[in-house]
């Protein structure tokens, strides 16, 4: 009799666990719900064997994903990057020239960082590009996270495999690993700080490194963050870019 009660209790608990369990797709959806319009001042610190370079810029992003980046550090002061849907435009104030990046040129690094212009254009939704599987739960820096393994649905996706650690409470990345087709890890990103602004969780301090390279790191810091703003479309225009 006791055996029966134990069995029924266990089955009920397992069923309840199944009902309440979150799926990988839901985690990704919750992650993407944190996206939205944003204004911020950002700093990138690029460290390699030659030393550390710091670049700063103002960042503006619309709710539909258009983006304007204006550099404020001395070397690149006034240089701008505009993303309109899947198009990237660069503006160089010294030359007073707008350059439309397309094709292979999108693979170039943004100001020598571990980010490429292509990373800025990733408009295609994560769920369209990857098949995600929830592999369990792990703590990252003491925060409980979902571990999601995402495999590319097609062979034209830049990183054929990614492993994401998503904060269980905030639904923001705590860690991400990107892999090549051979299985070799190419990028490792740690999110050291997440801020909740207007109910949205935004990573504000990220470290990215290339495991194949020694002594390299790109630190991305977001300050003066504002989210869910009404930003007029005119901010994301070629006129504004060359203004």
């Amino acid at each position: 009799m006791l055996k029966k009660i134990f069995l029924i209790t266990m089955m009920t608990l397992l069923a309840l666990e199944g009902l309440s369990a979150i799926t990988a797709d839901e985690i990704i959806k919750r992650l993407e719900q944190n996206e939205g319009s944003m204004e911020a001042s950002c700093t990138i610190q690029i460290t390699d064997s030659l030393g550390t370079k710091t670049k700063s810029f103002n960042y503006t992003k619309s709710a539909k994903g258009d983006m304007m980046l204006e550099f404020t550090n001395i070397e690149e002061k006034g240089q701008k990057i505009l993303r309109l849907e899947d198009e990237i435009y660069l503006y160089f104030p010294d030359a007073e020239e707008i350059i439309h990046l397309q094709g292979e040129s999108l693979k170039d690094s943004v100001m020598g960082s571990d980010f490429s212009y292509e990373d800025l254009t990733k408009e295609n939704k994560f769920e369209n590009k990857y098949r995600a599987v929830l592999e369990g739960e792990e703590d990252i820096d003491g925060f409980p996270c979902y571990k999601v393994v995402a495999t590319a649905k097609s062979r034209d996706v830049v990183y054929p495999k990614q492993i994401l650690w998503v904060d269980k409470k905030l639904f923001a990345y705590r860690k991400a690993e990107m892999f090549a087709g051979s299985g070799k890890m190419l990028k490792e990103m740690f999110v050291r700080e997440i801020k909740v602004v207007s109910g949205k969780s935004v990573p504000t301090y990220m470290e990215m490194r290339d495991p194949l390279k020694k002594n390299n790191k790109t630190v991305f810091i977001i300050k003066n963050l504002k989210v869910d703003m009404d930003i007029p479309d005119s901010v994301f225009s070629l006129e504004e870019l060359s203004w």
Binding site: A152, R155, D156, V157, Y159, A180, G181, S182
Partner: peptide, 15 residues
């Protein structure tokens, strides 16, 4: 040595 490159379709690959 390790080579890192993009395939014809654009995905990262190493060798």
């Amino acid at each position: 040595a390790e080579l890192k490159f993009r395939t014809r379709l654009g995905a990262y690959q190493t060798l």
